[in-house]
């Protein structure tokens, strides 16, 4: 569209980001993050990020590679604790409770805020054991039949039960990529989380498996609050109600997904979602 543009080149360095534009906050927040900074040693990966995850909504985190999406997501269930040089500052609350507070047990937190990773990572155990593991260690079942029931409902919610019901004792690693990812979702659901974090859950899947996962996300939001990182703009547009755009460790813009994809307010968001230089 070269000639309808007064060819003004906008390098990202020219564009200021002071505070996110749009609507980063809501009345019905499941998680509230305020002024979050994240450091890897001396390197600051997240700069003063504040926003809410709205209850029973899907929030998509998008942005160029290296902008800090995974880093931020990992703060939400303290996965970053496992990285020694990682240091998190600011306030992160789950239902008003500080998740980096002294009273918070990270293991319990991770049951309440579950995570699904980019590459399906089932344990080298049976399908049944993959799902039963969490409920067992958290003591969610008193006997075998209760555990069976948790396993079955979780697999059903993940849309996998019918495909695997006759081979629950076989290894989870023997499933297809899309099935493995749904197994991991079932494993996450099995401990009755309140929030589910997904880091590019469909990036290794074909379009059909992707569509199945997306449909699943759509259903899961009835019960859970979901944050999803994705590199697919179409996926973000399809599955989420809210979208947050990150750039160089800062939150640039957040708002209703529909608005972000039809009429973003910030130039950086516009450039990114429409595949422009910026």
């Amino acid at each position: 569209m070269v000639d309808i543009i007064s060819a003004k080149s906008l390098g990202s360095n020219d564009i200021k980001i002071d505070g996110a534009v749009g609507e980063p906050f809501c009345d019905d927040a499941k998680m509230s993050m305020r002024n979050v900074d994240v450091f890897y040693g001396d390197n600051q990966a997240i700069h003063d990020v504040s926003f809410d995850l709205e209850k029973n909504q899907v929030t998509a985190l998008i942005g160029p590679s290296g902008c800090g999406k995974s880093t931020f997501l990992r703060c939400l269930n303290r996965m970053n604790d496992l990285i020694p040089i990682c240091n998190v500052k600011g306030s992160l609350q789950l239902d008003g409770e500080e998740i980096y507070g002294k009273q918070m047990d990270p293991v319990l937190l991770r049951a309440r805020v579950g995570m699904v990773f980019q590459k399906p990572n089932p344990f080298p155990k049976s399908i049944y054991e993959n799902v039963a593991y969490g409920p067992k260690i958290h003591g969610l079942a008193t006997d075998k039949s209760e555990l069976d029931e948790i396993v079955e409902t979780s697999l059903r919610k993940a849309g996998l039960f019918n495909e695997v019901k006759d081979r629950l004792d076989q290894p989870g690693t023997g499933l297809s990529g899309g099935q493995q990812q749904r197994l991991c979702i079932a494993r996450t659901i099995a401990v009755s989380p309140e929030v589910i974090l997904m880091d590019e859950p469909a990036s290794a899947l074909d379009p059909i498996a992707t569509a199945v996962i997306e449909e699943l996300i759509h259903e899961l939001k009835e019960k859970y609050t979901i944050a999803i990182v994705t590199h697919s703009m179409q996926q973000a547009a399809r599955v989420s109600q809210k979208t947050a755009y990150f750039h160089l460790g800062k939150l640039v813009e957040m708002g209703d997904t529909k608005q972000i994809f039809t009429n973003p307010r910030h130039e950086l968001t516009e450039n990114y979602i429409s595949g422009r230089f910026g």
Binding site: V2, S6, K8, L10, G275
Partner: peptide
């Protein structure tokens, strides 16, 4: 209306 160019030049050509 002053968008910058697309990474895909072909896309710019198609819109133009």
């Amino acid at each position: 209306y002053q968008p910058t160019q697309h990474i895909s030049q072909q896309f710019d050509v198609e819109l133009e």
